[in-house]
């Protein structure tokens, strides 16, 4: 009897420490993952009583035959395709420049970091005010250079570029700080050796800095892509709760939100959400494989 009492005891003790976190994770993370997967297959159900009358592939069929969903996928993919590399590239350039500064290093860091910690709602509202066609600051500044007014917020061709610029602007500081931290970890002896061998600055950058930053850049690429796929708040606010002119800002999360919150079509929204999850999962796995292969 005594032999068994100890391990059970330690297990109970561990359980006590884990319990608060596990209860919350269980109810609000584990359960919903399975639930939303299951809900994608509910074709007839009563959400109030949680009673399911019919299951099937109907919701997935609906989603995959809905032109709006394809439009949302297309918009989101274009957004991710441009916003993520552009954001990392600009952050990389700025981080390297900041790293070389002797003075004002922390000043620049703090300024670039500002958008990251401010409320997306607040800054989206300022952006839409600045992009106002008739009274906005952006058009006023363009006028100084003789460029005619641009209907930023009502021209469907402008929606994705604006969202990309917004996302680059908002995420710049976070990326700069991570790259700066990684830059600090590079042994200066590499550069000293390269200088002795007569390597030019940009060659040093290409053959020392970039390869040694690779783990950091890979991390940024994966996390930023995942984040970018979930774009919603800024579209919703900047375009007065609409998905942009002519649905040019319809994104996957906007689609899900719309089905769920506006039309109360829970099951269709769940099916669409599950597709989003699969896309992100696939993307993550592919990127890990590529990163892994290149490392060898």
């Amino acid at each position: 009897m005594k032999k068994y009492s100890r391990p059970i005891n330690t297990e109970l003790r561990a359980m006590a420490y884990l319990l608060p976190a596990l209860v919350i994770i269980g109810i609000f993370q584990f359960y919903p993952i399975f639930k939303s997967f299951a809900m994608g297959f509910y074709t007839k159900f009563d959400y109030l009583t949680d009673r399911v009358y019919e299951t099937g592939l109907g919701n997935f069929k609906y989603v995959f035959s809905d032109p709006d969903f394809y439009l949302a996928m297309k918009n989101t993919c274009i957004f991710v395709f441009f916003a993520v590399p552009l954001g990392i590239l600009i952050a990389l350039i700025l981080a390297v420049l900041i790293d070389r500064q002797r003075h004002l290093k922390s000043f620049f860091q703090s300024v670039y970091f500002l958008p990251f910690i401010t409320s997306t709602v607040s800054v989206s509202i300022v952006w839409s005010w600045m992009l106002n066609k008739d009274f906005g600051l952006v058009n006023a500044l363009l006028k100084l250079f003789g460029i005619p007014k641009v209907a930023w917020l009502t021209d469907p061709n402008m929606t994705l570029p604006i969202l990309i610029a917004f996302s680059v602007w908002k995420g710049l500081g976070y990326k700069i700080i991570l790259i700066l931290a990684a830059l600090q970890g590079i042994d200066t002896q590499y550069y000293a050796a390269a200088r002795i061998d007569g390597a030019k600055a940009w060659k040093q950058f290409l053959h020392i800095t970039i390869p040694l930053l690779k783990p950091c850049l890979t991390f940024l690429y994966i996390t930023s892509s995942i984040g970018a796929f979930k774009i919603f708040d800024e579209v919703y606010i900047m375009y007065a709760q609409q998905p942009g002119p002519l649905k040019s800002g319809l994104t996957i999360v906007y689609y899900i939100f719309n089905k769920f919150y506006r039309h109360w079509e829970f099951a269709i929204a769940a099916a669409a959400a599950f597709v989003l999850f699969l896309i992100i999962l696939l993307l993550t796995v592919i990127q890990f494989i590529i990163a892994d292969k290149k490392e060898r």
Partner: peptide, 24 residues
Amino acid sequence: ALFIGLIGTMMVPSEILIIPNYMT
């Protein structure tokens, strides 16, 4: 096993959880 399960859960976008969580 628990730890790996948790790390796996981290990859699920929180937007997916919104609908079932709202229902719960």
